[in-house]
Amino acid sequence: MATLKLLAAIALAALVHFVGMQLWPGFARVVDVFLVVVVLHGLQGSSLSALLVGLVVGLLQDTLTGGPFGLFGFADTIVGYVTARLAQRLVIQRPTGVLAVVSFASALQQAIVVGLVLVLLPSPELPSPVWVAVRAGTCGLLGLAIYVALGNWRRSSEARRRGRMNRLRMN
């Protein structure tokens, strides 16, 4: 069930990415929906699963970008692992904590990709620092919004389940 949910989340991220790119060509420059999926999965705390998900999602993302194939695979593997380790050591309960973690993860991912590009390509093009910061912030906000929405949805479905149980007991 968890695997299915994860696959659905990745498919949804791809769909949001494609729709976003259709609506606004600068979408990929401003937000990275794939990274948000990796980080939110990493926050569940399983480091092995997080690094593997990071690897798969990163490689999918590599399909949609130019440059050497595997840049995002490498970066997202590290991001997934680091996020999971952070979640193991810190108690992240407040939505602002999620915002900080996702923003940090986005900055880390972009730093790793830039580092790799500098090592691998002779005269590479680099992203503007302003856009790096914007992307980190936007990813953080998106992560926060999804985290809050998922929390509300979980609470409401739990309340519905309890209500049903109570009605069954009364009958």
Binding site: F18, M21, P25, G26, A28, R29, L64, T65, G66, G67, L71, V113, E125, L126, P127
Partner: peptide, 13 residues
């Protein structure tokens, strides 16, 4: 079917 010409790692499918 897909074009990303705005970001720094641009591509077209």
């Amino acid at each position: 079917v897909y074009v990303d010409y705005a970001s720094w790692l641009r591509t077209l499918v």
